[in-house]
Design a protein around this nucleic acid. Structure first.
Lengths: 348, 348
DNA sequence: GTTTAGCACTCGTTTCATGCGAGTGCTAAC
DNA sequence: GTTAGCACTCGCATGAAACGAGTGCTAAAC
């Protein structure tokens, strides 16, 4: 059987209706739809075909039909047109980004907030990766006899710090000297270059401190370590607005999954080089998310993708609107960060 | 009417049972309780009295009775004995604190996790205040022509950073010089001293940079600004385990409240100098929390309270166990932080 | 051949009556 | 003061009946 134009139109109508109402869609509902112009009986035949083809499911005989994951997948891949945002929405997003931000973390938080408040789903934002950032400043602050804090600052104004063991033989003065040396040698380089830097390159002048230098490099690796990136959540409560989660057991499962930051992190990371990823229902690995969909997108500094953000909602989420909103937020966010970042390079 | 010893015993039995079962308690249930030894009829009379006194409520005629907020308040104030933790629980808590921690933020997160996993309620931990911390290191890192990052490190190894405007007249060299001066003048002092430091004290040698120095001091104030403290949450999903939140609407209200960090922050802050605070049901200000209780406690470095943590659960929470658990966690946490902190002072 | 009207049938949901049982309050006896 | 006994209340579970949204099939219409 073939999915001809008419079947497609009907399927789309069903999906549109279901996204809106969350209730199984009957043949009459569709036949009343003006731009279809077919009787309910015809629709029934078509729906029966669509069910056979795996696009529709019947919760039980004599209920209407519900789109399957396969239908959403098809919808997303071929039918969906990106929605236009209303002027208000656009203005609201822009407004949220027009304030002054103290640092990148604040921007990340704000993005999560905007995303959940505009979409009404649950949102998550992964903090930027630091690989491409350039080291601006590095310093070892002695804390006690055998511990110091390694502080680094990137050119985008992101600071990170690491507790680090110091050999007893090192005194404050030596740490200070080492800090100055590290600064001279490392600042201006990309963090991923620095982290993978061959020890020999540094050790020449600092032969006897080799072991300790090693520890410093490990910490620097930690700074671009993916594990160090945070996932900022917002709008968790929104999941309880959807009838699919009026069952507490289900809600608990999803909430448990959402609380597992490592899981969200993986969803935001494990993506190729496409702009958007849409993971629908059963396509999700985690059992708690088999009944919801996740949309993720990237944000950039200049042309370089440095992070991603996403939305979690029921499989019947309004994909086209979500994509439109995320697209706009991605733009605003990337622009903001790029300005912040480029401003630095301007001075070179 | 007076609350004599027998009424008290009966009330306690009712509360104990209700905490366990979440179901209205009937007179027969109590009369079967070995160490009461009264017939159900007698219990009924007493329960009727207790209801009249406001300690019990009846969801409807011919249901059992449910303790009121007033009963919990009385229970907490006068009847409650602190529970003993089992050896396992004690060991589990200790084990969670025996690992190596990279920094204070990690400890805060871990504390939230332990607290929710041991109590099975939702937990929150407020990050430490920095007032009493001593400034170890301060540096201005130039980012662009007119912006710099102010980085500070406390003696406990906590780093904070602030984006700051720099007058165009300042070049990198001057910033470096200023950094050195600030270090010399400020390090070793408590942050609250530094933040409230009179400008004149500093300005002497730096008269012409007065405006900029001002900005630096404002940032330093920001570091001890209460708004800068974070609330770490854990075990949010636990609220869905309780029958009182099997109603999705209620769950959503509570979840909304829990998502409002400013609210949690206030609950963790607005406390006098008592060790524990227990806020029961209607005593909570926020509407979403009128049906749950919050227990908070302090943690310290040495003798100085520097932060607090808490548990959110249904009003029928197991107060005595929660207090016992929090007491132990408070000890472990304070000990850990004190060691971290004292280690620093050891070197003076 | 496609479309549609018509109709019997299915099945979840709502409604209502009924009975059960947990629990109460009151009274009278101990 | 305590308790046994009993009538009474009321939520809840059970089951029957009616409802209605929706289906699938058939036969007629286009």
């Amino acid at each position: 059987m073939e999915l001809d134009a008419r079947k497609l139109r009907i399927l789309q109508a069903i999906i549109d209706d279901y996204i809106l109402t969350a209730a199984p869609v009957g043949s009459r509902t569709i036949s009343k739809n003006a731009d279809i112009g077919l009787s309910s009986a015809t629709i029934r035949n078509e729906m029966s075909d669509l069910e056979e083809m795996g696009f529709l499911e019947q919760p039980h005989t004599s209920a209407g039909r519900v789109p399957s994951d396969k239908a959403y997948r098809m919808y997303v891949n071929t039918i969906m047109r990106r929605a236009m945002l209303s002027g208000e929405e656009l203005a609201s997003i822009r407004a949220h980004y027009s304030q002054r931000f103290g640092d990148v973390d604040e921007i990340v938080k704000q993005t999560a907030r905007v995303l959940s408040s505009v979409t009404k789903y649950t949102s998550m934002v992964l903090s930027p990766r630091l690989h491409a950032a350039r080291l601006k400043y590095i310093h070892l602050v002695p804390l006690s006899e055998n511990r110091a804090l390694l502080v680094i600052v990137t050119d985008a104004g992101l600071a990170r710090d690491f507790l680090i063991r110091v050999p007893r033989s090192f005194d404050e003065y030596q740490l200070e000297k080492l800090s100055r040396l590290l600064n001279a040698r490392l600042s201006g380089h990309r963090l991923d270059e620095v982290a993978s830097m061959h020890l020999g390159e540094l050790a020449g002048e600092l032969a006897e401190e080799k072991g300790f230098l090693d520890a410093v490099l490990v910490s620097l690796q930690g700074s671009i370590d993916e594990g160090a990136r945070r996932v900022e959540l917002s709008g968790t409560r929104n999941i309880l607005n959807f009838p699919e989660y009026s069952d507490v057991g289900r809600a608990r499962n999803l909430l448990s999954a959402i609380e597992r930051k490592d899981l969200l992190y993986r969803m935001l990371m494990e993506r190729g080089d496409v702009e958007f990823t849409i993971t629908i229902g059963g396509e999700n690995e985690d059992a708690g998310m088999k009944e919801c969909s996740v949309v993720t997108a990237k944000y950039r500094v200049g042309d370089e993708p440095i992070g991603s953000f996403g939305v979690i909602g029921p499989t019947r989420m309004n994909y086209s609107r979500v994509v439109a909103v995320m697209s706009q937020i991605g733009l605003s966010l990337s622009e903001l960060l790029t300005n912040m970042f480029e401003e630095e390079h301007g001075e070179h």
